[in-house]
Simulated assay, not measured.
Amino acid sequence: MDAKRAAESAIIMTELVLPNDTNLFNNLMGGRLMYWMDIAAALAAQKHCNMPVVTASVDNISFESPIKLGNVVHIEAKVSRAFTTSMEVHLRIWGEDLAKRVKYKSNEAYYTFVALDENNKPTAVPGFVAETDEEKALFEGALRRRQLRLILGGKMKPDDAKELKALFIKD
């Protein structure tokens, strides 16, 4: 299985914020945005492995700016690292006010997906090649984020998270 570049998994999904998507403040509801983000992230993961995928975790969603009724939502998603059977997908979300010609960052998040074989069992995914400085930084951070997810999920002991520990403990 040949390794793939981040650009090969890139997805840009665009949605229009309609009245049914908003809360009482005429802002896009967080749950609706997370639904769209899950779809975009799944598409990026599937492009990377060319197999069905399931969401394994969602973490570090940061809400920076609300997206208003009538604005456009652009969701950029691409794989940031591949592990044995899982892939981390990094998402950036932009709002755009077409009338004012303003585009602004709204959100950022990390989703993890697991590839499934024909028996719905986890299966190996292609490796990953980071090319740009930004992709390399996301790639390096992905291992620490994975270790944190595994610790919080009770699947890894904190003492085994060497890369994560290195951030806090200097030898």
Rank of each mutant, 00 (worst) to 15 (best):
A6D: 06
K136T: 12
A130G: 12
L16G: 07
A3C: 11
K165I: 10
V54M: 08
E96F: 03
T132Y: 11
L98E: 12
E135N: 03
P52Y: 07
L150H: 04
A6H: 04
T84I: 04
K100S: 11
F128E: 00
N27H: 15
A115M: 02
A41C: 06
G31Y: 13
N20M: 13
T112A: 12
M13C: 07
M34E: 03
D38F: 07
E76I: 07
W36H: 06
A115G: 01
G127H: 10
Y111I: 06
F25W: 11
H48C: 00
V125C: 00
E76Y: 15
S80L: 06
H74I: 02
G127K: 11
M13V: 03
E118F: 09
M87P: 00
A77L: 01
F63V: 04
N71C: 09
F139K: 04
F113M: 09
V129G: 00
M156N: 12
A44S: 15
T84M: 05
H74W: 10
G70V: 03
L69E: 07
M156V: 11
G30L: 08
N50H: 15
G31T: 08
D38G: 08
E96G: 02
N120T: 06
N27R: 10
L91D: 00
E76L: 12
N26T: 04
A45V: 07
L98A: 15
P52Q: 13
N27C: 04
L138K: 09
G153K: 08
H74A: 02
I75H: 01
R92G: 04
G95S: 05
N71H: 14
D159H: 12
L150M: 13
V129A: 06
A142Y: 02
E108K: 09
V58M: 12
N71S: 06
E108G: 09
V17M: 09
P66M: 04
N71Y: 05
V72W: 01
V102G: 02
F113K: 02
G31M: 10
N60T: 06
S86A: 02
P122Y: 03
L148S: 10
S65W: 07
L143G: 00
M1Y: 10
I151T: 09
A161D: 06
Y110N: 03
D38M: 05
N20V: 13
A82D: 05
F25I: 05
A124K: 11
K68W: 10
G70Q: 02
D133K: 15
I11G: 03
D59T: 04
A40H: 00
G95H: 05
T85H: 04
E76V: 12
D117M: 10
Q147W: 11
I93H: 01
V129L: 14
L69G: 04
F25Q: 12
G127E: 05
D21L: 03
K105A: 14
A130V: 13
S106P: 01
A56G: 12
C49G: 01
A56S: 13
K121R: 15
A142T: 06
A142Q: 03
E108H: 13
K4N: 07
A109M: 01
H90F: 15
K103G: 00
I61G: 05
A142E: 02
H74E: 09
L116A: 03
E108D: 08
Y35F: 14
A142G: 07
S106H: 01
L138Y: 09
M34I: 14
I11R: 03
I39P: 00
R149P: 02
